[in-house]
């Protein structure tokens, strides 16, 4: 695992959103949506990024796909010509880079233009990138639709998104993301709006296609149970920081950070005979607005003491076997 090539190398990535800036003054108040995130995603693995709403997981996804520009830090993406910092890409180079990185969105009802047919939706990346001839593009679209299980493809090509069910739409979204043959796909809650009976097959499909097309996933979700099935490694985010990172089963069975522990014990278990551990944190998530230079979890942490108060946010340190934790009390 560890000897595999690094595909995406996230270094000190930060994104600050100004608050209440007027027309002529610069804002002095910022939301630290993502702050100093370091993460290496290796080729062929899938990393789950979990956290509560507002923890910065979606912002991270948008930074990796350059839907947003980082405030500071870099995202180095491994291409055939060596690593490229995606924040530095402009114009044509940026457009070309889009072939390598794609995204699957949460809401299958909103992520497709209601006025485009399925054919036009799936072919869009090919069309704007100018890949292949018309016939080749058409073949590629048909091939992708069939591999996401929309068979026969011909009966779906010229339908509109509103004529499809949620599960079918999400399959179309997967086809669109994979049509240009990307190396890296950011999946932002791709199954959270699907019903249980449909969800499993979409999860399975993503996994199969990931293997088939050699895709590396960053799987963003609030649902840790789903992340367990979709990711090899798990990163837990809290207020813009990764607080714990490690192999999924390791993190689930031996969580080290007090926030991860709380989060895991709060997840309901589909077994009436199971007794969960009590959740021991207090308060609720605030917004990381100009946070004080101390552990982000300080206010809610059951272990917080003087040391935590006077020191900056703890660094993410290896506790052995690739299990990283950012906490002074482990």
């Amino acid at each position: 695992m560890t000897n595999k090539e690094v595909l995406v190398d996230i270094k000190h990535l930060s994104k600050l959103f100004p608050m209440g800036s007027g027309m002529f003054q610069r804002s002095k108040v910022f939301v630290y949506a993502v702050s100093d995130v370091n993460l290496q995603i290796r080729k062929g693995e899938s990393v789950g990024l979990v956290g509560e709403s507002g923890c910065g997981k979606t912002t991270t996804g948008k930074l990796l796909t350059r839907l947003l520009n980082p405030t500071s830090g870099s995202v180095d993406f491994q291409t055939e010509n060596g690593p490229v910092d995606i924040a530095s890409l402009r114009g044509k180079a940026m457009k070309k880079f889009r072939r390598h990185v794609q995204m699957i969105f949460q809401d299958p009802y909103e992520s497709m233009n209601p006025r485009l047919t399925i054919n036009d939706t799936v072919a869009e990346p090919l069309n704007v990138q100018g890949i292949g001839s018309l016939v080749e593009r058409e073949d590629r679209v048909v091939q992708l639709l069939e591999s996401v299980g929309l068979t026969p493809a011909s009966s779906f090509l010229f339908r509109y998104p509103h004529e499809l069910s949620g599960g079918q739409r999400q399959r179309v979204a997967i086809a669109r993301a994979l049509v240009v043959g990307p190396d890296f796909v950011v999946a932002d809650e791709p199954t959270s709006m699907l019903d249980v009976s449909v969800r499993t097959s979409v999860m399975q499909l993503m996994e199969d296609l990931g293997e088939k097309f050699g895709v590396t996933y960053l799987y963003i979700t609030h649902d840790i149970a789903v992340a367990r099935y979709m990711s090899d490694r798990l990163a837990v985010m809290y207020l813009g920081k990764i607080v714990e990172l490690g192999d999924t089963e390791e993190v689930l069975h031996h969580p080290l950070h007090p926030y991860t522990k709380a989060l895991l014990s709060a997840v309901p278990v589909p077994d009436p005979l199971h007794q969960r551990e009590p959740v021991v944190i207090k308060g609720q998530v605030s917004k990381p607005i100009n946070p004080l230079p101390r552990c982000r979890f300080y206010e809610r942490c059951p272990l917080a003491d003087k040391f935590c108060e006077t020191h900056d946010h703890p660094p993410l340190e290896d506790q052995g076997a690739g299990h990283y934790v950012a906490c002074y009390h482990i």
């Binding site: 457009k95 995204m103 233009n113 990346p125 704007v128 990138q129």
Partner: peptide
């Protein structure tokens, strides 16, 4: 702010593509 506009950007579409293929038709 619809996700399909973001999807079009991820596809590699430029501003004009997005305005004329996605915004104007809607």
């Amino acid at each position: 702010v619809k996700p399909y506009i973001e999807a079009a950007r991820i596809a590699g579409g430029g501003d004009f593509h997005i305005i004329f293929s996605h915004m104007v038709p809607n």
